Amino acid sequence: MLVMSTRVRSYAKVNLGLAIGPVREDGFHGLVTLYQTLDLHDLVTVTAQRGGSGLTLTSNDRRVPCDARNTAWRMVEGALHRMGVAAEVTIHIDKRLPIQGGMGAGSANAAAALIALETELGEALPQAERMALAAEVGSDVPLFLIGGAVLGTGRGEIVEMAPDFPATVCVVAIPSVGVSTPAAFREWDARYAAGLAAAADVQEETAGWSEVIDPLLTFPPVRDTLSELSRVYASTLGSMPGSTGIVRNPLLEKTLDGMANGLAENTLLELVRTGIENDFEEVVFSQHPSLREIKRQLMGTETEVPALYAALSGSGSALFGLYESTAAAQAAQQRLQSSGVKALTTETLPRAEYWGRMVAE
């Protein structure tokens, strides 16, 4: 009997900005981030036969766990349980994206595996259940069930559509060094604790100056744009069909309106002018100074046609730059490659293109 399979492109993401909050009661950090999917991908192939039982996972990369440690495994296992379906399932992950790169590769694999499984079975979970399962599997998984520009809050798993902007040329730098996200968070927490202790010491020594010292006790400050987004999580953007709510704030009102109207160049420039940034750079660049230099090369100079924006993605180690033209992006790629850093030219992937290109032939 001929066994068919479904192959899905498992797209990457970058974080256009990321703000880290204090540790919550559940042990996770509160985050506010603006995700953006990219036209770089792994390939996830799923075969499912009803009536059988068993789950097998393989990969072309031996670093990929092929058991229940893998997010794609847990996603498929959880989906079958929620559907009440018995099936024999095989998953193959063709890795092309970096591991520990901050590009969401493992999380994207999980979302791709679910989409392929649903296609194979001809049955889909209700959207609310899909999103709940995705959040259980990993903080970055839900964004890949939306695609395009996505606002993430909570620990990153509470996601909302953000208005898309058209495809923008992008260079992704893939350093040889890997960054441990838990180690980055530990360093952030150590700095946070040191800041609190220092502020408390100063407050004790300067009694009566509370109006000056009290603001220091919130060190490090929750960053401008993204933190304000979470605080005013309220109104909706009526022109976005299917959105359950879009965060608005006065600082980004023009940016969001520009996105909604498809004004790509002005939108990106407005976004950059808000001061959007990635808090992880503060600790990761001190742990890995070479990454700071890579960001500088991505940015370029005025004589080199500088990037519109460049940043670390997530906790790294991948970094990216956004450019006004392909020529500017190719110049940045050449700068990086000349210094021995792997660099890829691609583009951001808006939501319609994300879903339109997902299932591979």
Rank of each mutant, 00 (worst) to 15 (best):
Ile174Met: 15
Ala327Asn: 10
Gly21Tyr: 05
Glu211Gly: 07
Thr236Lys: 13
Arg357Pro: 05
Tyr233Arg: 15
Val14Arg: 01
Ala199Arg: 08
Asn261Trp: 09
Tyr354Asn: 12
Leu38Ser: 08
Gly148Leu: 06
Gln203Pro: 00
Glu77Asn: 08
Arg69Glu: 01
Ser230Ile: 15
Arg351Gln: 06
Val76Asn: 01
Ala105Val: 00
Leu298Cys: 11
Thr345His: 02
Val85His: 12
Ala184Thr: 08
His41Asn: 06
Ile115Asn: 09
Gly356Met: 06
His29Ile: 09
Glu281Lys: 02
Ser139Glu: 08
Tyr192Phe: 12
Val141Met: 13
Ala112Leu: 02
Leu268Glu: 07
Met131Phe: 15
Val141Gly: 14
Ala352Gly: 01
Pro306His: 06
Glu277Ser: 15
Thr346Pro: 00
Arg50Ile: 09
Leu269Gly: 11
Asn261Gly: 08
Gln334Tyr: 11
Gly316Gln: 04
Arg7Gln: 14
Tyr309Glu: 03
Thr181Met: 12
Gly30Thr: 12
Pro65Lys: 01
Ile158Gln: 14
Ala234Leu: 10
Gly245Asn: 05
Ala134Phe: 04
Leu55Val: 00
Leu263Ser: 09
Arg130Met: 03
Asp42Thr: 12
Val222Pro: 04
Ile20Ala: 11
Gly54Arg: 00
Thr267Asn: 10
Thr37Cys: 03
Asn70Ser: 06
Ser338His: 13
Ala113Asn: 15
Ala68His: 12
Arg351Ala: 02
Phe320Ala: 04
Val137Lys: 04
Gly321Ala: 05
Asp201Glu: 14
